[in-house]
Design a protein around this nucleic acid. Structure first.
Ligand SMILES: [Zn+2]
Ligand SMILES: [Zn+2]
Ligand SMILES: [Zn+2]
Ligand SMILES: [Zn+2]
Lengths: 166, 166
DNA sequence: CCCGATTTGATAAGGATTATAATTCTTCTG
DNA sequence: CAGAAGAATTATAATCCTTATCAAATCGGG
């Protein structure tokens, strides 16, 4: 954690930016919620718990700055708000997302599944790929399992009824 | 065109919706700008040329309705507005996009490049894929060619200078 | 033609993000 | 260490996109 913050600090300094207490608090919130997909408002509320004097505008500016530095990626799942997603340190691609249309959960795939596809795109469409966004919409493993359990249950009930009838 | 509108009309009727003149005008604009990625406002302005009395709210409502019917896909390229993209008729997947970070152009890939990846995701992450969004950010073929041409030019100029010096 | 339901248009309301301007903090210099 | 210049922050106003509201218009069946 501290190491990571120090490296971000260096990145900021390299571009003549400072790691102010507000910026540090914001980065800490992002690190502590690494697997979440927080909106600016979410971040603001969490930062306020530690640094109650911070303003919403500062959070927006800091997130914008971190996006510029590629510390976070700004992503939009179609619900009207931008969300900010910490990049894996050293990752050279933006991870993929699984959005559940049933429960709303957002899971991540850190592994890069697009290597071959990108090669194809560069060759066939003559397009130099610099970044990508890949999101799958569907039903998450938790909801699938719940469904399966329900189906089993229904089936058992059916059998009971059969027995009763006979 | 007319056939396509008729089929959309049937889809609407199947769900007890009407193809009102305003809705038809909106669909026509989408069909006439099939390869574009229009925002609600863009659509509104174009529809107004043919049906000046239409209201912005109706356009939003119609686009929402068409999204529900899967006639269009709503997509967001991160510039703060939703864009509406006509689905290829009969396509069972949402096409992919190439966004140029240099000139802003958005090109389309109609071919489905994710078949294998989706199979892997279903198997390995136990996630039932229903839809996807794939966008590549990079440099389009036009900008690449322009760059190459400039490089060639620079190189020629260099050679000329060499000659002059000698 | 009349009735009930749907759809529309104008406008208000809402929500997210950005712009503004006064103030505070940092850093540098003498 | 005081003073000045520059960077960053805060609170708030402004803006932009989208949705909600509601009276009026339209449609379709009897
Ligand atoms: Zn993520
Ligand atoms: Zn789920
Ligand atoms: Zn380009
Ligand atoms: Zn498209």
């Amino acid at each position: 954690m501290e190491g990571r913050i120090n490296r971000i600090k260096k990145q900021l300094h390299a571009q003549k930016y400072k790691l102010t207490p507000q910026r540090e608090a914001t980065v800490r919130v992002l690190l502590e919620n690494e697997q979440d997909h927080l909106s600016a408002e979410d971040v603001y509320l969490l930062v306020k718990e530690k640094a109650p004097e911070i303003g919403l505008a500062t959070v927006y500016r800091t997130l914008e700055l971190l996006t510029e530095l590629k510390v976070v990626d700004k992503i939009n799942f179609g619900d009207g708000v931008s969300r900010y997603d910490l990049r894996q340190e050293g990752a050279n691609h933006f991870h993929h997302h699984l959005v559940c249309i049933e429960c709303g959960a957002v899971d991540e795939i850190q592994e890069d599944l697009l290597g071959d596809v990108e090669k194809l795109v560069e060759r066939r469409w003559h397009f130099k790929v610099k970044d990508h966004r890949l999101t799958f919409h569907g039903i998450c493993h938790r909801c699938l399992e719940k469904r399966e359990a329900e189906n089993r249950q229904d089936h058992e009930n059916e059998l009971e009824h059969e027995v009763e009838k006979v």
